[in-house]
Design a binder for these strands. Structure first.
Lengths: 147, 147
DNA sequence: TAAACTTGTAATCAAATTAATTACATGATG
DNA sequence: CATCATGTAATTAATTTGATTACAAGTTTA
């Protein structure tokens, strides 16, 4: 299993909207960079819009960031694209046998453990912003040009 | 998406083997507590065995822990049951457009970020042992009995 | 030794999820 | 009105999961 690439595509979209801020970031344009179908991009754009991260309007070409670069964290994107339900990064087997000590209690024991692992992951995502990503991408770009 | 319940079932199995250490933990017995098919348990037992966490022998009923309770971490189980490939908790979209600044660099920018989030999660799992789980389960059991 | 029981493992199946694709309603604009 | 955009639904193939059945091979015991 793997967390859907909608997440990385979401990051890609926001990053490109910023880097292309003087141009028009239509779904077709973004799809060209991500290398996928424009409808896939529009679907994700809809999620980002719903989460208040971008501004898009039906009929009008192009998306813009709805917040400051440094106010959008990877956690915002992660939650926006809905790759993982709240508290459910890990799934726990259902209906363990209630007639067994372990079966009776295992879910309640495991749940908070899984939750704190999930939270640790989310904290890391919360500490990275799209601004960081944009900077790193442009940084790497400079290095590439030298080669 | 969600991380396979093989993980929580693996924890359940190890915990029950310990709590039932005076009895025989056959795949059928374990399956009865987890509430699933014995073949599912045997498959997971095979993974736990391969990872050196339990001892099982063909033809001989019952599994035993192969290490001390306090030497088995949840991370050991997590890796044993193979729910997530190394470095691949998050998937990154493939073949972004190399003719675009973002497309060219996004993968290399994102990968270490995802990796550190994944590592943070694993660190939490590494700090919890089966001993902790066993203690918590028995603790909760005592509380239940009072009701 | 034969019967009974176990683990190990492969094959099959339905259900769920993903990303890609097609299609089309609706909005905006020259 | 023609053109192009977004929004969204439906369909598809591929992948993964957990359940199930089946059976080979090892062990025990009557």
């Amino acid at each position: 299993m793997s967390i859907s690439s909608r997440f990385s595509v979401g990051i890609h979209i926001l990053t490109l909207i910023e880097i292309n801020k003087d141009g028009v970031s239509s779904s077709e344009y973004l799809a060209g960079s991500v290398n996928t179908n424009p409808a896939v991009i529009r679907k994700i754009m809809g999620m980002l819009k719903k989460a208040g991260l971008i501004k898009v309007q039906p009929g009008i070409a192009g998306a813009e960031l709805a917040k400051d670069l440094s106010d959008i964290t990877l956690l915002d994107v992660y939650k926006a694209v809905n790759v993982v339900k709240d508290k459910e990064l890990f799934s726990i087997h259902e209906n363990p046998n209630p007639d067994c000590t372990v079966g009776r209690n295992i879910q309640n024991t495991i749940e908070p453990l899984f939750f704190s692992a999930q939270t640790a992951l989310e904290k890391v995502l919360e500490n990275v912003t799209i601004e960081d990503v944009v900077k790193d991408v442009t940084e790497k770009e400079k290095l590439n040009v030298k080669c």
